[in-house]
Design a protein around this nucleic acid. Structure first.
Lengths: 143, 143
DNA sequence: GTGGCAGTCTAGACAGAGTCTAAATTGACG
DNA sequence: CGTCAATTTAGACTCTGTCTAGACTGCCAC
């Protein structure tokens, strides 16, 4: 049946190469660094934040590599791209289906608690297209 | 009870000033132009597309005015801001609650057909915050 | 080993959406 | 008509993200 076991955070640094390889991502030094940062815990990081963490860890990668790597990880399903506010994209190290709260006033982003939220009566995709993913963002304001 | 009657597209050009005023938006020449474009029909337009339509109509407004006006309209509830792909923001001239399909391959954006889609078991917003709006975007790819 | 090659990485130029600033214009009201 | 606050403007500016051209890396064949 070949059910692929996807590693979800936290993933130890020494397991990152295997996590990449299992998704068909060629392993390189930069990808290990970036993967280790993202997979350390379930979190939402922007490209800029990832690069700052790289520096803080004494590693580094060019801006182009950070963007390319995050895009590759998202394409391969290691992380999930979140478009929240048009100013930047966030990468969510929890790639499974779940929804988000976004506080419009202070920019904070939370996962929904794992309550059984369901979307019912979802229409079928338009003719000639197939479903990719469903994003649900609940915007809240500070009371 | 003071139930406000919100005008929904199509709104005739001569009714635009009243539509603005009813939402507490000061009426100016530029706002009428931009409002007339948006409210002509239910549609999704980017700031750039609005400005192009202005030119096409022989009117014009500076880039800053277009952005300010669209932001003001969104804040007042005349249109709804849609953050879809991080590259630009769209303004939806149908401000009522409804969800969207987005074709990732060609960038087209559709409303859901008006089937009774419902989100159930939506968790309550985090302590100290209150719900602003819920965005549901179903991303599809060309098969 | 060593030559070649594809894939990856890099610096820095570039692109495009959106914001900011300071000055000019408008229009409401006395 | 004069004043004042709100609005509009041009254009500089910021910021995220992309592109380009060259350098580097690692792996395989010989």
């Amino acid at each position: 049946m070949n059910i692929k076991k996807i590693m979800t955070p936290p993933v130890r640094r020494e397991d990152v190469p295997a996590a990449l390889a299992s998704l068909g991502i060629a392993v390189t030094a930069q990808r290990i660094e970036i993967g280790a940062i993202l997979l350390e815990s379930m979190q939402h990081l922007s490209a800029e934040q990832v690069q700052a963490r790289l520096e803080a860890d004494g590693a580094s990668a060019s801006k182009a590599t950070v963007y390319n790597t995050l895009g590759l990880f998202a394409k391969k399903g290691l992380v999930r791209e979140l478009v929240i506010d048009g100013a930047r994209v966030f990468y969510d190290s929890n790639p499974s289906d779940h929804f988000h709260f976004y506080n419009v006033d202070d920019g904070t982003l939370f996962d929904f608690p794992s309550s059984p939220v369901t979307l019912t009566n979802l229409p079928t995709p338009p003719e000639g297209t197939k479903l990719d993913k469903v994003d649900v963002i609940v915007r809240v304001t500070t009371k």
